[in-house]
């Protein structure tokens, strides 16, 4: 039943390692990009506010598959952008991370913006009255409290991102979903077992993430 795991033909752990790498790089990138977007959306400059609003509403409504294939066909094949990669393996990985950051950043931004709304407006006004600039208010007063309020929603985004990385298989990044396609092609007599192994693999990745961050969010939540 599960002989295919012992045949030595498939590097299941290696494929899941690529999934983990995709997730980590994209998570860090989208956290940064999402924070920047959130800052722009609450900022005092109308142009930046308009850009961030338009960007979020546009990108989060594009199907991720379209976005990722667009990165490959549009940016790479047509425009020749390689992001410094020298072969398709590197290029594909980097393009996928770029796509995931562009997409997931919008969800991080919206989660963070809801966190900003939990900070009483009086605090920001008091900080302004003390003479802090917009960036100082954001950095010292608002964002630290906002982040603590949105750990749980951000964990949701992270779990969704982990599963979304399977879309990278469509542009040939050798992560778990691509290996699953290969195994389905070869192991016609054990399809359910193949599905089972990969379903379990993703549960193993996401379940601890959810539990850990759920615990963290309770510990760090701002008591009001």
């Amino acid at each position: 039943m599960f002989d295919f795991l012992n045949s030595g033909q498939y590097d299941v752990l290696g494929a899941f390692w690529v999934t983990v790498q995709l997730t980590l790089y994209s998570a860090v990138g989208s956290l940064v990009w999402g924070t920047v977007l959130a800052g722009m959306r609450v900022g005092p400059v109308p142009l930046m506010r308009g850009f961030a609003t338009a960007y979020v509403n546009l990108v989060r409504n594009i199907p991720l598959t379209v976005l990722i294939i667009g990165c490959s066909l549009g940016l790479n094949q047509t425009l020749g952008i390689t992001l410094g990669g020298s072969n398709f393996k590197e290029i594909g990985f980097r393009l996928a991370v770029l796509g995931f950051i562009a997409y997931t950043g919008t969800f991080v931004c919206e989660a963070l913006r809801s966190g900003i709304n939990t900070v009483p407006v009086g605090q920001a006004e008091a900080a302004r009255a003390l003479g802090l600039s917009f960036f100082q208010v954001l950095r010292l007063i608002v964002l630290p409290q906002a982040f603590r309020a949105v750990i749980a929603p951000l964990a949701n985004v992270l779990i969704a991102l982990t599963k979304n990385t399977t879309v990278a298989a469509t542009i040939g990044v050798a992560e778990a979903a691509l290996l699953m396609k290969e195994m389905i092609e070869n192991e016609a007599d054990a399809l359910f077992a193949v599905f089972g192994v990969f379903a379990l693999g993703f549960v193993v990745l996401t379940l601890p993430t959810g539990l850990l961050l759920g615990w963290v969010s309770k510990r760090v939540a701002v008591k009001r």
Partner: peptide, 23 residues
């Protein structure tokens, strides 16, 4: 992506080929 032909190239025919897998 994942086809037998792609696997043949990777393992036997030309391991150093720059293989792009598309849907």
């Amino acid at each position: 992506t994942g086809s037998t032909s792609a696997q043949n190239v990777k393992t036997k025919l030309a391991p150093e080929a720059d293989l792009q897998q598309l849907p």
